[in-house]
C-alpha cells in the first residue's frame, strides 16, 4: 500500500549554512558513523557535484580506507584542483527513512562533512530563507 503522507522534515539554517543530519555507512563492512542515536551534521552544498565528502577521520573510522579506492579530482571555485579518494558506501537520513548508496570521498585537510548534489537526487528540498529553515522529503 502506498504511504499516504510522506515523511517531511524541517531543520534550522544556522549561521547561513544548511545542515542535514545524516549517518555515513560502510555498507560492505557493516560500519556506521556516528553510532547509536547520534547524527552527523552534513553541510548541504549545491556547489559540490559529488555524493558525500567526509574528513579522513570519518572515512578511516568506518574503514572505507581498507577498501580498494577510486581516485577522483575535485575542482574548487577558483580553479584549484584537489586529489580525492573514494569508496562506495551509503548515507542515511533516519528522520526521512532515506538510504542511498554512492561514492564517499575524502582528502587530507577536509574538516567538514559535505553532502552534494548526487546525494540529493531523490530528495525534494526547500530552502526557506524567510524562516531560516531547510525542508526536505523523499521524491
Amino acid at each position: 500500500m502506498l504511504e499516504r503522507v510522506r515523511k517531511r522534515m524541517s531543520w534550522p539554517i544556522a549561521d547561513h549554512t544548511a545542515y542535514i543530519p545524516i549517518k555515513v555507512h560502510n555498507t560492505v563492512f557493516g560500519k556506521t558513523f556516528p553510532d547509536g542515536d547520534e547524527l552527523l551534521l552534513a553541510v548541504l552544498d549545491t556547489g559540490f557535484s559529488g555524493f558525500v565528502l567526509v574528513p579522513p577521520s570519518i572515512f578511516n573510522g568506518i574503514r572505507l580506507n581498507e577498501m580498494k579506492l577510486l581516485r577522483t579530482r575535485g575542482i574548487l571555485a577558483d580553479g584549484r584542483s584537489l586529489r580525492l579518494r573514494g569508496a562506495y558506501g551509503s548515507i542515511s537520513i533516519p528522520e526521512l527513512d532515506f538510504f542511498e548508496d554512492g561514492l564517499i570521498e575524502t582528502a587530507p585537510g577536509i574538516l567538514e562533512t559535505i553532502i552534494g548534489m548526487e546525494a540529493l537526487r531523490k530528495l525534494r528540498l526547500e530552502l526557506d530563507g524567510c524562516s531560516d529553515a531547510l525542508k526536505a522529503y523523499k521524491c
Binding site: 552544498d45 549545491t46 556547489g47 577498501m67 577510486l70 579530482r73 575542482i75 571555485a77 584537489l82
Partner: peptide, 20 residues
Amino acid sequence: PRGVLILSSTQVKGARRLGM
C-alpha cells in the same frame, strides 16, 4: 571485500566541482 574494487554502473563523471 578488501580484495575487490567496487564499481557502480553510474560512472563518476570527470572531476568533482567543489563549492567554497
